[in-house]
Write a protein that binds this DNA or RNA. Structure first.
Lengths: 359, 359
DNA sequence: TCTGGACAAGAGACCGGTCTCATATATAAA
DNA sequence: TTTATATATGAGACCGGTCTCTTGTCCAGA
């Protein structure tokens, strides 16, 4: 409180110019680092700027140049480790390239996403990275494109939109996990997702509006179909959005006339909830039931047993998305590209090998 | 690619005004939502704006008003659950109040923090929330204050700076945890921090530059001193910044002539690493050793046994910090306030009750 | 000595909003 | 009818930078 808060008008180039006895244009040249100035004048101006503690007003700068140096990122929920890691990847690349990142949460709500996009466009971000909440509603994303702001989709893709996308190879990953479970002797495999749908059961998988979820579901189904397994669809359950609902989903699955012998959780949050549900039910993993979770979250290594996971290189995905956007910002007129980043299965101890008799 | 990317100059109030056959000032009035206009003209302008797909340029708006509607947040590492939760709290409050949040990572590096602050000031943020990497270097923070940008410190406080701060009640929390361990019969209690110091051992605790860490260390020491325990200082170890180093710290502690019977981890990341170290060493919790971790991270509930934690309401802390900043932005000339948010101990199964013979 | 080109610095428009002040019209009071 | 007052719109300055265009200097070559 020493210095009473006089909201003193900030120091401008004009102020510096006056103090240095040069024109505004000249002062701007040295302060902005463009054009030519003599060394003598440069020093004068710099000295004056230092004395007055001049700080450039990036806002004004952005307004004339039309570039804000900001990349807008719209994610489902920063609190989710998946997104925070991705954001970290994005930020790291952005910072290296001299860009800043402004993050907005959509909470996976279409409306929130729309207004976040509007707002960021209003702030004149140079480019956008968006995790679309739904892949079937894209007018607002088309707008971005039309306004001329480069856009990269993250985690989910919308082919019809014709823009770059960086995702995981969800279909393959799901197939791989399913293949592994089949190889271990499992024949009734459940897939549990947090996807918020009307019912717990899966209708037409093509109607799932989130492409990542859809691809995973289809991968699980495809692999089982190839193995000649019917009823696979019966074991796909949606709506595990919180602990009570997850408990319900898991309980109902296990009360089935033919309960599944293995569960696949669609992300690390669902995985954690499923694990807790099983714990509550007093079931032992993998003796009573096997499980696999998407994403190599930290909790998966400290449980007993540690959880077998499908590891997505999320940080890399974030980096890739940012790199893609930045090269586009740098005017590289590249072709639209959809990159699916390869995932791998980390085998730990949560999947049992079933003897034939149990199958 | 349907619509070739003509970087068409964006639609301005002047364009709308022309289309609506009114003056720029009038169009600005209805578009900006200030001043008075007749309903008839309002409709004309709105119609024209809709037809042209007018989007206000927030940059230009900010430049004249001097307010950007942005709150800058500088954290140690968004990837850390502690910060991402706090950021969520901040964002939620900010959004409700019509502010946006721009996040910068300092990586707990003083220089990165300085440049982040400079950059945000340059962007003319309306206010700042900063997690200072060091509490003994504060010139750049003084600058913020002098420039007239409201500042709230988060998680760590710097009394000399005379600005608002929202922290946990670290000293009390550490005392409480220590008290609990003492009550359970423990007499050799180790405190492990990720604080990056020259040596692994604690010199003068007052020299710790991070106030949160310092307070916790002092709380642990104070409570033991009150209980007549000497050598407490011997069991304070720093530098558990990654898994190998944590393994080393834990190993050396346990190889001590008089090894500790309980460990306190300074945050959830350190806690996770310590848990893994103990696991690697084949030690059973709490039979062979007890542990408590700061922060109620998700992993702490799914371990066997679940971990006793000191629960900091991080989301609330974030909210509180944002509320504080926003009321200051709204011109409430409030007194400087340092808020320490109360924490609680969640007893789970990682602390053993020691029989007297073992003490 | 004169001309041309390179170079340094100045003048002022511009970006897209906000906002003050002046002007014109409508309504109410005298 | 005249004057006062409120109300709606227009004209243009301003925010703090960037950038184009012009002017003025200096020195080399003819």
């Amino acid at each position: 409180m020493e210095e009473p808060l006089i909201p003193k008008r900030s120091v401008t180039v004009a102020d510096v110019a006056r103090a240095a006895n040069v024109s505004k244009a000249t002062a701007a040249r040295v302060l902005g680092g463009y054009g030519v100035v003599s060394d003598k004048v440069r020093e004068q101006v710099l000295a004056a700027a230092a004395a007055l503690e001049y700080r450039p007003n990036e806002l004004a700068r952005s307004m004339t140049t039309g570039k804000s140096g900001i990349i807008g990122v719209v994610v489902g929920d920063i609190e989710n480790a998946f997104f925070s890691l991705a954001v970290r990847g994005i930020s790291d690349v952005a910072r290296m390239a001299g860009f800043n990142v402004i993050i907005a949460n959509s909470g996976e709500e279409l409306d929130a996403e729309k207004s976040a996009v509007d707002l960021l466009i209003g702030k004149r971000v140079d480019g956008l990275i968006v995790t679309p909440a739904r892949c079937d509603r894209m007018e607002h994303l088309q707008d971005i494109h039309r306004v001329g702001v480069p856009l990269v989709l993250f985690d989910r893709s919308i082919p019809e939109l014709g823009v770059d996308a960086v995702t995981g190879d969800d279909f393959d990953a799901a197939m791989m996990a399913t293949r592994y479970l089949l190889d271990m002797g499992h024949r009734r495999i459940a897939y549990i997702s947090a996807m918020d749908a009307e019912g717990e059961f899966l209708g037409d998988s093509r109607s799932i509006s989130n492409s990542a979820v859809r691809e995973r579901v289809e991968g699980v189904l495809k692999e089982q179909a190839d193995a000649g397994i019917r009823k696979a669809r019966h074991y796909v359950r949606l709506g595990a959005t919180d602990q009570p609902r997850t408990d319900g989903v898991v309980e109902r699955l296990l009360q089935d006339a033919a309960p599944p012998t293995a569960l696949i959780a669609s992300d690390s949050l669902v995985g954690l909830r499923v694990f807790k549900s099983l714990q509550t039910l007093g079931l032992s993993i993998p003796r009573d039931i096997s499980m696999i979770s998407f994403l190599d979250a930290d909790w998966t290594t400290v449980t007993t047993p540690p959880i077998t996971v499908i590891d997505q290189p999320v940080y890399e995905m974030g980096k890739k998305a940012a790199e893609r956007l930045i090269s586009r910002l740098n005017g590289k007129g590249m072709l639209v590209e959809r990159t699916a980043i390869k995932t791998s299965l980390i085998r730990r101890g949560s999947v049992a090998s079933l003897p034939l008799s149990d199958q």
